[in-house]
Design a protein around this nucleic acid. Structure first.
Lengths: 255, 255
DNA sequence: CGACCGTTTGATCCTTTTCAATCGTCGTGG
DNA sequence: CCACGACGATTGAAAAGGATCAAACGGTCG
């Protein structure tokens, strides 16, 4: 049990010791999993990086949009804030994900971003966004993809909330985390949740008790194992099946 | 009964008499409600337009992303298609809205767009997107805003689905339509729904019966009047209150 | 050790879905 | 011109799924 916990913690594997004060565009493209253009200018273009402490708010809703950020390391929680003060979780950006792209539309951010873990981000000033787009086509393409990716991510979340039941949402959430951790070189099957049950509930449109119950339920079915924030995925195929079955049963189908 | 309809029907010519075969960037910026940059180059840069017949699919999920589109006139339904065939409504783009921005991320569209009405769109080839960003900063800014707006829109929908009950979702949906019609110069209080109850349900994550029941309920409360697809908003303040009350009661609050 | 915070679990209530039947409208063909 | 059939919309009753209220548990930190 304790050994599990120790092994499951993903972050400590890569300390931020080597964190540079800046990052060139080529490395940035790699970080974003966007095939880096061979254009040598990408190596010459550098962006500053910034550290964000745990629980620190990097982007506040209503703030003027000065920068975009790409997560270099760490873990964030992104939320939409209604004028009435209601909150809706939007996602949990981690290494390679983008923050702040919502602010370009009006010049002010509508979503906030809070670090759930000691993190580091690459800072892309909006002014440089247009300036660099002008000077280097490869960078313009990079930026467009980076922003568009946010749309795809949100649309996928919309599918979760609109078409799936509670159990399927939680299952899909775990599988998504699993994939993303794996893509970063961590274990696909064992990891620690960085967010509270409340955060998960805000994101999935479920109450905290429901999240807890469903996690327990999945564990009882033998699909996962949960102890507090340590999760192990025991039967990924069955989890995937749970999501797809729910989609087939409850979601409206095309045709 | 309707002079507009009567006049449009017998004319086999293009219903939009003034419709040009192309549109300059300055006019496009105005269409998008983005303050047009005074840069004279915007007047010299033109984009082709294209007609889309009713029920025609402009963008198919999986298609290669060659163009972005800005709706010049008409009405669309945009949907996300899961691999398993499940469908999730994403929105109902109309004049001034953008289509296809999801495709920039990977080069393939993940969402489809179907015209619910005879429509016309401005075509922005992806190749020109980067080329023009390179030559004109004003256009780059325009494009970034245009794409970012899609993110804001989706995040707002996420709030609807994740935080509001069925009645509030329908109320918010009606108010949104009302605002958008008003912004286009149509009546804020009386309009025809172009989409079926099924389309509304797909978008709001509700079953068709629920949508119907809630519309009837709102009508019985005297907030709206519904007959088939003709909607009249009788008490916008009460509708708005219904949304905000629901947000306060059911949605998790910040703090 | 004790208090606090996040989590789990149980019982009950409320909302939404499901299943089923009916209605109304529009378009088609007799 | 009317009858018919198809499709979309409405309405009702029963069932399922989450939410709510309430209580207890388990780690963590002072």
């Amino acid at each position: 049990m304790n050994a599990t916990l120790a092994a499951a913690a993903p972050t400590p594997i890569r300390p931020y010791a080597i964190a540079a004060a800046s990052m060139d565009a080529h490395t940035l493209a790699t970080l974003l999993h966007l095939d880096p253009d061979p254009d040598p200018v990408l190596h010459q273009t550098a962006f500053a990086t910034r550290h964000v402490r745990e629980k620190e708010t990097l982007i506040r809703a209503g703030d003027e949009c000065r920068n975009l950020y790409v997560v270099r390391s760490g873990f964030f929680r992104s939320s939409y804030l209604d004028r009435s003060g209601s909150i809706q979780g939007l996602g949990f950006p981690m290494t390679g994900d983008t923050l702040g792209a919502d602010g370009l539309a009006t010049g002010r951010h509508t979503a906030e971003a809070v670090a759930l873990d000691c993190s580091e981000v690459v800072v892309i000033p909006v002014a440089r966004l247009t300036a660099l787009s002008r000077s280097h086509a490869a960078l313009a393409t990079l930026f467009y993809r980076l922003i568009s990716r946010e749309i795809v991510r949100d649309q996928c979340s919309l599918f979760l909330l609109g078409s799936l039941g509670a159990e399927a949402r939680v299952a899909a959430f775990l599988l998504d985390l699993s994939d993303r951790f794996c893509a970063l070189g961590y274990s696909r099957t064992m990891f620690n949740l960085r967010m509270t049950r409340q955060d998960i509930g805000n994101y999935l449109g479920l109450k905290i008790e429901t999240v807890s119950r469903i996690l327990s339920g999945l564990a009882q079915q033998g699909l996962i194992s949960v102890h507090h924030r340590a999760v192990e995925i025991l039967d990924p195929a069955a989890l995937r099946l749970a999501v797809e079955d729910a989609a087939r049963r409850t979601a409206p189908r095309a045709g």
